[in-house]
């Protein structure tokens, strides 16, 4: 596949500085998200302006409760925005119906969670295949092979999640998220439940996906070291983004 050969190519950081004319794949404008807790409204996002270019990898950091997950859910169309705009590949999610957001998510978004969230009854293969099934294009053996080999899962495909290590489970989850070639991969603390060795493997694989397949990634993390694997780090506090400085 030539994957190993490309992994260390030092192109990161340089790639996007000369390409500001490229349309962002993701853009939020004054994005608000309010949760209703009883009678009071809790603002989780308070006017987020955020852009991600195609092929970019962005780490989002910030203290607990600052709205990182909320941002990811709204971007991914899992939750409805309260105010503002969310443009994913040119579609404004805030103007879409629930069904249309679901469809957009099916075709353009891949999710990875801290808790792996594999379906416990299915094997690793089944967990990946069901994403292809929901996507609707059926099982694509070629894509399946490329993805599972890249994530080092070839020998573990017939095991159930309970028979896999945390690191393996998370790699299956990543395979599931990218199997349908989403425009954006959204990861919410994907290394949060992993030890440092497995965290490193997962982070390396995310970087490899970004470089080899041009996968756009937005990842939430609490781990400052994790940010070195990404083009850019974004800091959030109290529901807003406080900077947007490039990582390097």
């Amino acid at each position: 596949m030539g994957i190993a050969a490309t992994i260390t190519e030092p192109t990161e950081g340089l790639l996007f500085q000369g390409k500001k004319s490229v349309e962002p794949i993701l853009r939020t404008e004054n994005l608000w998200k309010l949760y209703r807790a009883g009678k009071v409204e809790v603002p989780a996002l308070r006017g987020v302006n955020f852009e991600v270019l195609p092929g970019e990898s962005v780490a989002v950091m910030g203290p607990s409760g600052c709205g990182k997950s909320s941002l990811l859910y709204v971007i991914g169309g899992l939750a409805q925005a309260s105010r503002g705009k969310v443009l994913v590949d040119g579609n404004d999610l805030t103007e879409l119906s629930d069904a249309a957001r679901t469809k957009l998510r099916r075709h353009k978004i891949g999710f990875v969670f801290q808790r792996f969230n594999l379906l416990p009854t299915l094997t690793a293969k089944g967990n990946i295949a069901i994403a292809q099934f929901i996507h609707g294009d059926g099982f694509d053996p070629h894509r399946f092979d490329v993805v599972t080999q890249m994530l080092g899962l070839a020998g573990r495909l017939h095991h159930k999640p309970s028979e896999l290590s945390g690191g393996e489970q998370q790699r299956v989850a990543i395979a599931r998220a990218i199997i349908n070639e989403p425009k954006i991969l959204l990861a919410d603390e994907p290394t949060g439940n992993l030890d440092s060795k497995n965290s490193e493997i997962v982070l390396q694989m995310l970087r490899q996906l970004n470089k080899d397949l041009g996968q756009t990634i937005v990842m939430i993390t609490h781990n400052p070291e994790a940010t070195t694997y990404f083009h850019r780090v974004v800091h959030m506090r109290d529901g807003i983004i406080v900077d947007g400085v490039p990582a390097d």
Binding site: G76, L78, A99, T102, K103, R105, R106, H107, I109, F111, F113, N117, L118, L119, P120, I130, A131, I134, H135, R176
Partner: peptide, 16 residues
């Protein structure tokens, strides 16, 4: 419940 959330995050609609 969580599995249903997962299916939805993968883009499964109500009908699915």
């Amino acid at each position: 419940t969580r599995d249903i959330g997962v299916l939805k995050s993968l883009g499964a609609n109500h009908w699915f």
